[in-house]
Design a protein around this nucleic acid. Structure first.
Length: 462
RNA sequence: UCCUCAGUAGCUCAGUGGUAGAGCGGUCGACUGUUAAUCGAUUGGUCGCAGGUUCGAAUCCUGCCUGGGGAGCCA
């Protein structure tokens, strides 16, 4: 049985007979023997293999071994004579599964730009950086489930296809089974959706929140973790058309409880990644962003800054800095304002609460003076908004009024309103952009490099 | 969608009106318990696409395409 390289590097002992399988990262031919470094994705470091010329088929095998080739090596672990590794494999046999023609294999033994690697999305996961990213991404996902499961939250699966076209979170992708070359029309010359699969306009979800609220009204504490879709023609280093979102929803919870959970949540994820992926995190700190480790320590050990929107506006107005966009109570915070607060002023995650009613969604709980709603955004240095949440409006009459005020039809929300009609409770929740979390964790500058197969405008190749 | 910068060898880039270059990579050789090995030789191009200006365009102009950074929108 082949063993994983990460385990051999940690605990492998001299004289053990081992078999490993993986891909050749580098080959260094010497006179009479060769070194190859084999990586199987289980760790940043590969395992060095020494192939002496007395290994059967040496000349022929060595010719076929180049960067990218897939191999199975059987041999004995020995203490390394060279510097740089504790142990290495002295090969008894080397089998090549598949060659990788060096004339055409795009990955070289040198640093590649992330732009170039995006063009070879089918091969880029074999690089050090993307390998580290996807191991950390996996650890983040594991930590998320761990955090909620330990607290008896139910993982609920909310739908990807939805007929709610008015959640207000962004542009939606239309879903149809109609033949687009021959779309049925109504007499009013609109699309006749009664002929479509669901009999009405249907979209990819922009949020599972409303459905999560349904489930929270039965199971008290729930969370979603799944893909989400936004069709905005948005071209920045922190937007994707398809991304993963985590949305906890808690019954019998107010905004303070929501913030407490969000903060504990982020601390837990950072701690778990530091515990399980130390080599990868050190790599990011050394090669990608030298503040990554300090940021993780800061998150884990320090309280997040908390302030109201009103106080934030006052601080921005006092700031010794000129902003391009105006700072005035009632206007939404711009990227530059958020960055000033989280990056310059507090230098840590900053929770801004109680935003003006006019600039937030209808489902957020109205404060007594009706000027603000119980909303909160967690702003991360460099990334911006990483979490957005709120206490939800649980009072039927106020919710109906707010839906109408925003020009929406309460009839479209009949089941959402029913939740307030039957056994309503105070409740709260938030949404976390999973890729933004991974970006924040790793220091990766572009969100397209923290998801294996990014979907963005004009980008859906792999 | 807007602003801005860029597109030249497999990769990273230099070349700003007059014979297309370097480093890395690849190939061949030498040497060496190597590890981004080293040394020597060698290979390598529709200068993003389409028009235009000019005796002459990688270089100047126009349009388009693609990508980076930023903004808006958002998580």
């Amino acid at each position: 049985m082949a063993r994983r390289i990460v385990e051999l590097l940690r605990t492998g002992q001299p004289d053990e007979s081992v078999t490993i399988q993986g891909w050749v990262r580098t080959k260094r031919e010497q006179k009479g023997f060769s070194f190859i470094e084999v990586n199987d994705g289980s760790s940043m470091a590969g395992l060095q293999v020494v192939i002496n010329q007395d290994v059967p088929g040496y000349e022929e095998t060595i010719k076929r071994l180049s960067t990218g080739a897939s191999v199975e090596v059987s041999g004995v672990l020995v203490p390394s004579l060279g510097k740089g590794q504790r142990i290495e494999v002295k090969a008894d046999s080397v089998a090549v599964f598949g060659e990788a023609d060096p004339e055409t294999y795009p990955l070289q033994k040198k640093r590649h730009s992330f732009e170039f690697l995006r063009d070879i999305g089918h091969l880029r996961s074999r690089t050090n950086t993307l390998g580290a990213v996807f191991r950390v991404r996996n650890a983040c996902a594991t930590a998320i489930h761990q955090f909620f499961q330990e607290r008896d939250f139910l993982w609920v699966h909310t739908p990807i296809l939805t007929a709610s076209d008015c959640e207000g979170a962004g542009e939606m992708f239309a879903v149809t089974s109609l033949n687009l070359k021959q779309v049925p029309m109504t007499e009013q010359k609109g699309v006749d959706y009664s002929k479509d699969f669901f009999g009405k306009p249907t979209y990819l979800t922009v949020s599972g929140q409303l459905e999560a609220e349904i489930m929270a009204m039965a199971f008290s504490n729930v969370y979603t973790f799944g893909p989400t879709f936004r069709a905005e023609n948005s071209n920045t280093s922190r937007h994707l058309a398809e991304f993963w979102m985590v949305e906890p929803e808690m019954a019998f919870c107010d905004l303070e409880g929501d913030m407490d959970l969000a903060e504990a949540f982020l601390k837990h994820i950072f701690q778990h990644v530091m515990d399980t992926c130390p080599e990868d995190m050190e790599f990011f700190n050394a090669r990608i962003d030298d503040s990554v480790l300090a940021t993780a320590e800061n998150i884990i050990h320090n309280e997040f800054e908390r302030l109201t929107y009103t106080d934030a506006i006052a601080l921005l107005q006092k700031a010794d800095k000129t902003f391009e966009y105006p700072v005035e109570w009632g206007l939404d915070l711009q990227s530059e304002h958020e960055r000033y607060l989280a990056e310059d002023l507090f230098k840590k995650p900053t929770i801004v609460t109680d935003y003006p009613t006019q600039i937030k969604a209808f489902y957020m709980r109205l404060s007594d003076d009706e000027k603000t709603v119980r909303a909160m955004d967690i702003l991360a240095p460099k990334i911006g908004e990483i979490i957005g949440g709120s206490q939800r409006e649980e009072r039927l009459d106020i919710l109906e009024r707010r839906i109408q005020q925003q020009g929406l039809d309460p009839a479209d929300y009949w089941w959402y309103l029913d939740l307030r009609r039957y056994g309503t409770v105070p409740h709260a929740g938030f949404g976390l952009g999973f890729e933004r979390l991974v970006q924040f964790m790793t220091g990766m500058g572009n969100i397209r490099d923290v998801i294996p197969f990014p979907r963005a405008p004009l980008s859906v190749e792999f």
